[in-house]
Amino acid sequence: MNDVDIIGLFFKRDERALSEVSAKYGAYCFTVAKNILGVPADAEECVSSALFKAWETIPPKRPEKLRLYLARITRSVAFNRFREMNRQKRGGGEAALVLDELAEIVPAEGGAASEAEYRELKAAVNAFLRALPERERRIFVARVFRAEPVKAIARGLGMTEGAVMTSLSRTRKKLRQKLIDEEII
């Protein structure tokens, strides 16, 4: 079933929407959650929660790209779960490593951004990603958005792990510089 039809089911409040979306994007969402959490059982729970959230938000929302919409929700649910696990010292998947890497841009110690600061940051990050050369963007998005392990990124793009790591390092430096230049950090 195509995305438009699936979204149509959501709008009709037809519960087949959930089975269809699960069959089509469940595995993808599971991968995103598992990358972040590292624990399959927790990832499965996250996917269920994410699908439920999708059910709650469509309508009124009508996502342009259903897969990304679901991935965003899954990522957010999984990340909240990751924080919970962190508090309980239960480890986690790649998320801890990704956050460590992002601490090179902005340290972990700072308080969360205010609403206004976050709006600025979001716009700057978006513009930065748009301007990045495609190859660097692919690598960065795979690592930070989908929390993919470096090895998987390297395999997917036919690169060495070292090359992926150095590209990520370079992108982080560039992003940090952009945020400094724009006086966001």
Binding site: E64, K65, L68, A71, R72, R75, S76, F79, V98, L99, D100, L102, A103, I105, V106, P107, A108, E109, G110, G111, A112, A113, E117, Y118, L121, K122, V125, N126, L129, R130, E134, R137, R138, F140, V141, A142, V144, F145, R146, G156, L157, G158, L175, I184, I185
Partner: peptide
Amino acid sequence: MNNEDIFRAVGEADDAVLDEEKVKRNNS
């Protein structure tokens, strides 16, 4: 502001920059 804000901001970037479908096609 902290590293989690960056993580969040990347997650809320436009579809156009996060969509890897095109990438998969290119790789194939």
